[in-house]
Design a protein around this nucleic acid. Structure first.
Lengths: 129, 129
DNA sequence: TTGCTTGCAAAGGGTTTGCATAGGA
DNA sequence: TCCTATGCAAACCCTTTGCAAGCAA
């Protein structure tokens, strides 16, 4: 665990905004001005593989989440803002594994998609012009 | 609805493999040899926005699904193979919208992640070497 | 030393875009 | 005709990679 890796982990954990690699890079640079983007990517990847953070794939750039508690996400179609939500559904991995024969299921993601309040307002305002 | 768009829609509908844009391009070229990748991307995007096909985001390139029936996917971590599954859970969009205040939820995705049978066997074989 | 991590920069893959042309209403 | 969609190629963004130098065991 190098200094870089520690800072990156801390930044991801501290932020509740599901930052992209680039955003983590900007945050990390405040502590380590000479850190490089490549290092950020490598460490985010490694932290994710070690299960210390979570990777969120979806439209647009990959995002990272330091919150390992079980929860789902709502993603705004327009601005890509992601909000945490309480777990709406819990699914048994064993049950899932059994029903998809051959497949060993280790994880699942539930993502809601829609439009956040701000984008709805903005859209309404544009329409009334 | 141009000829290109029709062919693209048909190819996505006919395939049960959740093809990538590039794979759709190769399929479409068999009917329209002069079609371009850009056109394929543009039409896949338009078909998806019109709700005629579904877009699957995840690790690796975007994939497309012509099956609009409600179903979930299992994705293999190693080879990115995606299989359809019966719907394990149904979630009420209205309920979801109400619980995530401000957000209007229009859709949700449930994706299982794991390892497909072939990759498990391959991995086992490699280990016993 | 030995091996792993870094910074840097270049390459890579997938996707989007500008533009002149072709085609359909 | 007018407007949109096309083919082509270049640009773009995000991510990965090669490499020499740096650091820790």
């Amino acid at each position: 665990m190098t200094q870089q890796k520690q800072v990156i982990l801390q930044k991801v954990r501290d932020s509740r905004t599901h930052p992209t690699a680039d955003e983590v890079y900007e945050m990390a640079r405040q502590s380590l001005p000479r850190i490089s983007l490549g290092t950020v990517y490598r460490n985010l990847d490694s932290l994710s593989r070690d299960g210390l953070i979570r990777t969120l794939e979806g439209s647009g750039p990959r995002r990272y989440d330091g919150d390992l508690e079980k929860h789902c996400h709502v993603r705004c179609k327009l601005c890509s803002y992601i909000r945490d939500t309480v777990p709406v559904v819990e699914i048994s991995l064993e049950e899932a594994s059994q029903s998809f024969d051959g497949f060993m299921v280790t994880d699942y993601h539930i993502e809601f998609v829609g439009m956040c309040g701000e984008c709805r307002e903005r859209l309404n305002a544009e329409r009334t012009l």
